[in-house]
Design a protein around this nucleic acid. Structure first.
Length: 465
RNA sequence: UCCUCCUUAGCUCAGUUGGUUAGAGCACCUGACUGUUAAUCAGGGGGUCCUUGGUUCAAGUCCAAGAGGGGGAGCCA
């Protein structure tokens, strides 16, 4: 028999093939019992639930059972039977137990009792074996799949935008440099600056902070594309909502205006929530019970409600006439701060809010300018607890307007020649947005720290594992 | 980067006004128990009180600096 032939715990738990021999493999969560009988809770990650293995102690070598402790990995051959005890419907009467790997109980860091999330972050190599992280990682997989499924089913093409970029004008944040030059003794120009002509790419390169500009190139050929890949920001952001390495989904669509863009974002977000509720029910129930009693209620309410759509100007009016004292000013032209966004979403509307029509001067160069000459067709989707989860816009497709804007902001026009070419040749109205995958995961799982919804978080001063 | 709080056993935490040998629960080890459910019961081992310096007759406790972590803010997704 091949070593991989096994019944997954998930399948065994719902099987009615009683009195037949099956093999399960996994990691021991707990072992209870006495001199004559042992109960082993076994988990293989296929589900949050464990299967109970029952062993008649005298039938197994002492040495073997002594090593079947929390954390050990074993293979069990036995008979699937309806459980004699309460608490589970099926169990396995063990006939043969093979120990793949012991886990010294004195030094194995994970215990049957709950650990703090802070402690688990220090042992991120082992935390996937906990109920919490098993659930989160299964949900993370399901959400990744749902993203691809949604776009595929709606005629979008998955475009792979580059991870290494020679463009430093994306303007989304500080970048990580990519180089093969000797950091101790790099070649220098006469003026003392680093000479990148001899670097691997012959120019200065960085890790991408956004695939949007390249995404637009794809949309202006394939009509509807999306990207879904890692994104890197070297900002010194120390918050529960920021990572230095995170995943971003960026759909980009030709022949969409800002209204179509909002419709897509709202439909997409609701689709993901529905998908999670339908496919990750047990994991979500666990998270609801252990971490956030309002999680399921919140998820269910979001899919039933229309997102509130307001302009920036209206948002400022609401904030100014709210009678609330904010730390930051709410004058027209000021950027909305966290406290403003939270007030709008959590106090005023009590549901997701999409804000459009931001002042041009606080938004990026590529956003479509409105006829008022003041505002741009930007949109931010604000979620309860998370804040900004989506940021997007209709793009400026008019070459002369775009060039004027680039000049106004002092951006390096020459480096954007390829981007501007799309407006020069067969330009089209188009729009798109970016969704932070881990921010979506925060909302879906109810976790409060973004470091707990990614397997191996990278944050300032932290790149362990 | 700024503000603020925290750091005591493997984990979670208590430790009074500065005062003898620093405690608890869980975990671990030993033993008891023939269906357990975070099993239960009895016993046992286990400490660089984050680091460095200072105040004091005396510091886990007070002061200063540093390190690590949490929360809030900024930047953003």
């Amino acid at each position: 028999m091949s070593i991989r032939s096994r019944t997954r715990v998930k399948d065994a738990l719902v099987s009615t093939g009683f009195d037949k021999e099956i093999t399960v493999k996994g990691w021991v969560r707990t072992r209870r019992g006495n001199k004559s009988i042992a109960f082993i809770a076994l988990n293989d990650g296929s589900t949050i639930n464990n299967i109970q293995v029952v062993a008649d102690v005298p039938e197994f070598p002492d040495e073997l059972l002594r090593q079947v402790t929390t954390g050990a990995c074993i293979s069990v051959e036995g008979i699937l039977t309806p459980s004699e005890g309460k608490g589970q419907s099926v169990e396995i009467k063990a006939k043969k137990i093979e120990l793949y790997g012991a886990a010294d109980p004195g030094t194995y860091p994970l215990q049957k009792k709950g650990h703090s999330l802070e402690f688990l972050r220090e042992i991120a190599h082992l935390r996937p074996r906990t109920n919490t992280f098993g659930a989160i990682l299964r949900i993370r997989h399901a959400m990744s799949y749902a993203i691809h499924k949604y776009f595929n089913d709606n005629g979008f093409y998955y475009l792979h935008t580059p991870i290494i970029t020679g463009s430093d004008c994306e303007g989304a944040g500080e970048m990580f440099r990519v180089t093969t030059l000797d950091p101790v003794n790099p070649p220098l120009n006469d003026d003392g600056t680093v000479n990148y002509r001899n670097d691997f790419f012959g120019k200065e390169t960085n890790l991408t902070v956004s695939g949007q500009l390249e995404g637009e190139l794809g949309a202006l050929a394939l009509s509807e594309i999306y990207t879904f890949g890692p994104t890197f920001r070297a900002e010194n952001s120390n918050t529960p909502r920021h990572l230095a390495e995170f995943w971003m989904i960026e759909p980009e669509m030709a022949f969409y205006d800002i209204e179509d863009n909002m419709d897509l974002a709202e439909d997409f977000l609701k689709y993901l929530v529905v998908y999670a509720l339908e496919h990750c029910c047990e994991d979500l129930e666990f998270l609801n019970n252990m971490y956030d009693k309002e999680l399921l209620g919140r998820l269910n309410s979001v899919i039933k409600t229309d997102f509130e759509r307001i302009t920036y100007t209206r948002a400022i009016d609401i904030l100014s006439s709210s009678g609330r004292k904010f730390e930051f000013p709410t004058d027209w032209g000021c950027d909305l701060q966290s406290e403003h966004e939270r007030y709008l979403v959590e106090q005023h509307f009590k549901k997701p809010v999409i804000i459009t029509g931001y002042p041009a001067k606080i938004k990026a160069f590529y956003m479509k300018q409105n006829d008022d000459g003041q505002t741009v067709r930007a949109m931010d989707v604000l979620f309860p607890r998370i804040g900004e989860i989506v940021g997007g816009s209709q793009r400026e497709e008019d070459l002369s307007v775009l060039e004027a804007r680039i000049k106004e902001l002092g951006l390096p026009r020459e480096e954007l020649w390829w981007y501007l070419d799309t407006r020069r040749f067969g330009t089209a109205p188009h729009a798109g947005f970016g969704l932070g995958f881990e921010r979506m995961m925060l909302f879906i799982t109810g976790m409060s720290n973004i470091r707990d919804v990614v397997p191996f978080p990278r944050t300032p001063k932290s790149a362990e594992f």
